Simulated scan of single mutants.
Amino acid sequence: MQLAYTMAPGRGDTDLLLFRLAEALTKAGVRTAGTVQINIENASGGPCDMDVQVLPAGQIFRISQSLGSGSRGCRLDPAALESAVGYVQTALDAGADCLIINKFGKQEADGRGFRPVIAEALSQGIPVLVGVNALNLSAFNEFADGLAQELLPDRPALEAWVHRSLERKGEAA
């Protein structure tokens, strides 16, 4: 099983890192599946709008909800996230070399979201790279059962892990 995660220190840094990684892998001929997150500054000065782009085709889903200026609740739109999950499952079924998931978040920590897609990819021997934040790290580690490798939040290091994983997968075939 080839499962890795990364955590970048700044707000939105993991999103940008995985977005650039997916671009680089695609240019290198790697068939990616999964999602990358695109954060869009909100004109009102409030929290950014969050979109996920499905790899490789590029469908974009707004996964954040506008709850109003006084709201303190979770802004995630679970229905939009589940729509993205369905598209990722379709891309995975069509054939992929690796799966990139922008974040193991609250939905995944609660057993929903991309969790089944991650498990499916791993069962097929497809390397999986996941972004994780400190809030959900313990839930991710429980899910991974100690089998995930932490990678530095560095694009060349992430690319090297993907390419090594693909080489190992090819050797095992």
Rank of each mutant, 00 (worst) to 15 (best):
Q2H: 12
L3R: 00
Y5L: 04
G10D: 14
R11Y: 12
D13A: 15
L16C: 06
L17N: 09
F19Y: 08
F19C: 07
A22L: 03
A22Q: 03
E23W: 06
T26C: 06
K27N: 07
K27C: 07
K27D: 13
A28W: 02
A33D: 01
V36W: 00
V36K: 01
Q37D: 05
Q37C: 13
I38W: 06
N39C: 12
P47S: 01
D49Q: 14
M50I: 15
V54S: 02
L55F: 05
A57C: 11
G58P: 04
R62I: 02
R62K: 13
R62W: 07
S64M: 11
Q65W: 04
S69G: 09
G70E: 14
C74S: 10
R75D: 15
L76M: 15
P78H: 07
A80M: 11
S83R: 13
Y87I: 02
Y87N: 10
V88Q: 09
V88D: 04
Q89M: 10
A91N: 11
L92M: 11
D93W: 08
A94W: 00
A94G: 03
D97A: 06
D97H: 09
K103R: 12
K103T: 05
E108K: 08
D110E: 15
D110R: 11
F114H: 10
I118C: 07
I118H: 09
I118M: 15
E120N: 12
A121S: 11
L122V: 04
Q124G: 03
I126G: 04
L129Q: 06
L129F: 09
V130W: 02
V132W: 11
N133L: 05
A134T: 10
A139T: 01
A139E: 02
F140D: 08
N141W: 03
E142D: 15
G146M: 03
G146V: 12
Q149D: 07
L151W: 11
L152W: 10
R155K: 13
P156V: 01
L158V: 11
L158Q: 10
E159S: 13
W161A: 01
S165P: 08
E167V: 10
A173I: 01
A173D: 04
A173W: 00
A173P: 00
